[in-house]
Amino acid sequence: MVTRHKLDVSLRYDRQQELPDSRDVEVADFDPVPTHDPPKAPVPREPYLASSELEDAVNLAIALGRPLLLQGDPGSGKTRLAHAVAFALGLPLEEAYVKSTSRAQDLLYGYDAVRRLYDAQLRRGPDDDRSRVPDVREYIRLGPLGRAIARAEYGRRSVVLIDEIDKADIDFPNDLLRELDQLAFEVPEAAGMRFSVPPDQPDLRPVIFVTNNEEKTLPAAFLRRCVFHYVEFPDDRAHLDEILALHEIGDVELRAEAIDVLLRLRDLDLTKKPGLSELLDWVGYLQVIGTPPDEIANLPYLGALLKQRSDQVRALDRQAAR
């Protein structure tokens, strides 16, 4: 039986939970994964305000053991969610940033054949000690998803982030189908080396987040295995204000003015509407250099908000017309 067919309600993400500023969490990027007593390191809190729909989607994905596919405009906080959930649950976060050359296997493990070849050849000298030929396992490094599965085998849970899956070739999601279904994989290069999440323990399944920027259509077979959530830009003032406050923008007037400007800009017909990350960058800088709130309407440091010349010209024209 595939582990995915068992429900797991042992873990819940609570968006309103009170969290400390920092907590000790197992170090994620550590290979090989220690079987017990893993090293821990403090992780700072990730300020994140999830909507209740998003909270539901996260909990549903955890319960069903399916990856949560997050879609939405760039800068709407898709990637940050994984950090926030990992921190809230106190689990290590394994991050896989997908590139155009990424292959599915890289997520599971990498095999350094070239180094092994060198080692094997160099040991062939006259004073060679045959017994010292290292084990093939020494040339295998687990990837992010591989480490999460190995960690589950040792009885510990992790959060996995597969970021911007659409950057890779279309084979990438297809090649992951079996591993995502069964949460198990083996390393053909090293006989007998295999890892799997114990099938009877759904509470060890890694929590997987996948983000997608819609640059490519993902294969239907992959989509079928995911739980989907579209991260909307929060268009209501109160929510935006709360987000800014969470990111330590203390000045109430500054927040109100900045939100005003942002919502106005988003009403224009722009090539790329400014998102949350742009807003946070912009207001953060305005606060640090102490811009008076009444000057914000003049759109200072517009480059942080709008990244295209035509958009900037349009925004400034509109500003002058007011």
């Binding site: 539901d56 549903l60 739980v227």
Partner: peptide
């Protein structure tokens, strides 16, 4: 809530939602 649950499970794009 039931509707949003079905959206989360069944839709895979904003148009499908």
């Amino acid at each position: 809530e039931l509707r949003e649950l079905c959206v989360t499970l069944w839709a895979k794009s904003p148009a499908e939602a």
